[in-house]
């Protein structure tokens, strides 16, 4: 009896300790980054592109990277959305029929999810060499799209699977075709979940550095065409951190704060969106 009580108490302590450690460490992480980054953060950081000698600690900002990252992530998320939604809809029983094929597709998506982003980057680079392309906004968007597809498709698939057969039957009973049901009923019902999935993928896309290291390039200018190279926030942080000048390293921390704020905004937006859009959902 005593032993069982003790085991319970010990493990409860361990669990509480784990939660405290996990939450504590993660909070300290954010606080540390913000605390180091805020002092170096000023308006010019987000309103100017790097001027001559920026990487030596002189004037300028990282507007190029902010805009570049937004271009890359928005482009990739839109493309990935256009490809993922049909895939997720197709995985429903009405279309795919055999559960085995669905299982195979889901397995492929899971494997894609697990492929390291640097491998996507290397693969993208091969393709670009083959096509004779240089590192560019287009290349970056394509590689990020590939990276985002499994995240988005799998997350959408999970929400779409929760749509009850009754709801779909109600639509079929009215004479709707499969695609009408899929677009007008199913998509409508899980709209919050679908948008959350898209924002999740957007967050991954904007934060990923390894895949665009060789495919998007880096430049101090804001790109004007799809074939221009483009800067990105994660790489801006990485490069600034690599310089020997303390002022520039401080700016890396400031850039990290900007990236954190963007991620935070996405997270809040996805929460608000799913709450706003949930009103048409049949419970």
């Amino acid at each position: 009896m005593g032993r069982r009580k003790m085991e319970e108490a010990i493990f409860k302590c361990l669990m509480v300790a784990s939660v405290v450690i996990v939450v504590g460490v993660l909070l300290t992480m954010i606080v540390m980054v913000i605390w180091r980054g805020l002092p170096a953060l000023d308006l010019s950081m987000i309103t100017q592109t790097p001027k001559g000698g920026y990487y030596l600690g002189r004037e300028g900002g990282i507007l190029n990277a902010i805009v570049g990252s937004l271009y890359l992530a928005i482009g990739a998320t839109v493309l990935a959305f256009v490809i993922s939604l049909p895939v997720a809809l197709f995985l429903q029983r009405e279309y795919i029929g055999r559960a085995r094929f669905a299982g195979l597709v889901r397995l492929c998506l899971d494997i894609l999810w697990g492929i390291p982003s640097i491998v996507y980057g290397a693969f993208g680079f091969i393709i670009m060499l083959y096509l004779g392309m240089r590192a560019s906004l287009l290349g970056g968007i394509v590689v990020l799209t590939l990276l985002e597809i499994p995240i988005m498709a799998r997350a959408m698939d999970e929400v779409i699977r929760t749509v009850s057969a009754d709801l779909k039957d109600a639509s079929y009973a009215l004479g709707a075709t499969r695609s009408e049901t899929a677009v007008k009923v199913v998509t409508r019902q899980v709209l919050p979940g679908i948008l959350t999935a898209a924002l999740l993928a957007f967050g991954r896309g904007i934060g990923d550095a390894a895949s665009i290291l060789f495919t998007a390039g880096y430049t101090d200018r804001i790109p004007t065409s799809l074939l221009d190279p483009v800067a990105s926030l994660p790489l801006a942080i990485f490069f600034q951190l690599g310089t020997p000048f303390p002022e520039v390293r401080e700016r890396a921390y400031a850039s990290a704060v900007i990236l954190l704020v963007i991620i935070l905004l996405i997270s809040i937006a996805s929460r608000l969106l799913s709450r706003r859009l949930a009103k048409h959902v049949v419970k």
Binding site: I30, G207, D208, A256, L260, I263
Partner: peptide, 19 residues
């Protein structure tokens, strides 16, 4: 909070590591 943290880019974790 955990869901938010799961979305934080790895570069930020790296920065924290260096700090």
């Amino acid at each position: 909070a955990l869901d938010l943290l799961a979305g934080i880019p790895s570069v930020v974790y790296g920065i924290w590591g260096i700090l």
